[in-house]
């Protein structure tokens, strides 16, 4: 890509000063394409930090509209955005933050029928799973494994969070750790759907960190590790996880070779 403008040199100066980044690294970031599936508790902070960093193309996938109950943690959306499409609200915030970023909005829910097209639309470099339900999480894993795309998986609930990074051939995938989706009839009680707002900020920003490190080619990713976080005890643990030879999608004898949709949860507290 062409030279950085004076304004970009100033905007990204704190990046450029870093030995592991430099002008070269910032140009990589400006050329990068990151897809964020779900602009909720995890996706919102991830998107904002990636926009601030200057990721040139950010894809936002969300079929939902902004709800008042989202505002406690989905900081990309503001009070005046209630009722607006989340991708629209997300795009507006990002545009105001950084004109170097182009937002690509996908106003839909990921399904077996569309996820390949969405990922393939710009042939995204890295995918961030910001979803809050297991059908989507398994679908995203399967799509990324089959399409050979690196991605960050994460989940948050109450005062806990966890995340891992998948890079094709170099790490376990989500199914290595969790081979099967939990039964669809396990519906949460209201108490189980609470989450401290900041949890998304901590874990979502870690996901954005992994995306930037991948784009820059620096540091060690959370490949082969599940990072868990307990906010009450302020404990981070990095649990080493092996590739599972018996994994049904990335193991030695995979049984899953195509994408399919799981049943959706029946409780609307999913968000």
């Amino acid at each position: 890509m062409s030279q950085l403008t004076n304004e970009q040199l100033e905007r990204y100066s704190r990046h450029i000063i870093l030995e592991q980044v430099g002008g070269k690294g910032q140009k990589k970031i400006l050329s990068a394409k990151v897809l964020i599936i779900g602009t909720g508790g995890l996706g919102a902070p991830a998107a904002m930090y990636l926009a601030a960093a200057g990721v040139g193309h950010i894809g936002l996938v969300d079929f939902d509209t902004v709800d008042l109950s989202n505002l406690q943690r989905q900081i990309i959306h503001l009070t005046n955005d209630v009722g607006k499409a989340k991708t629209q609200s997300g795009r507006e915030t990002i545009n105001a933050m950084n004109p170097d970023v182009q937002v690509h909005a996908y106003d839909e829910q990921v399904t077996a029928a569309n996820i390949r097209d969405i990922i393939g639309d710009l042939d995204y470099d890295f995918i961030i799973d910001g979803t809050d339900n297991f059908p989507a999480k398994f679908l995203i894993n399967d799509a990324c494994v089959l399409m050979r795309k690196p991605f960050s998986h994460a989940g948050i609930i109450r005062f806990q969070g966890q995340t891992m990074t998948y890079v094709p051939d170099k790490s376990p995938c989500y199914r290595c750790v969790f081979p099967k989706m939990p039964p669809k009839d396990a519906v949460p009680t209201c108490r189980q759907a609470g989450v401290l707002g900041v949890m998304g900020g901590v874990i979502g920003t870690i996901q954005a960190t992994e995306a930037l490190k991948f784009v820059l080619g620096i540091g060690e990713l959370l490949t082969g590790y599940l990072l868990t976080y307990d906010a009450l005890t302020m404990t981070f643990r990095k649990i080493k996880i092996p590739r599972n030879r018996r994994c049904n999608i990335c193991g030695e004898q995979p049984t899953i070779t195509e994408l399919f949709d799981y049943e959706q949860p029946t409780c609307s507290f999913g968000r």
């Binding site: 950085l4 004076n6 040199l9 100033e10 100066s13 450029i16 000063i17 430099g22 002008g23 070269k24």
Partner: peptide
């Protein structure tokens, strides 16, 4: 025409080339 740390930033980027 610029102040620190942009002085260093511009120089660093020029040297990369």
């Amino acid at each position: 025409d610029v102040v620190c740390p942009i002085t260093f930033v511009k120089t660093k980027v020029a040297l990369e080339d």
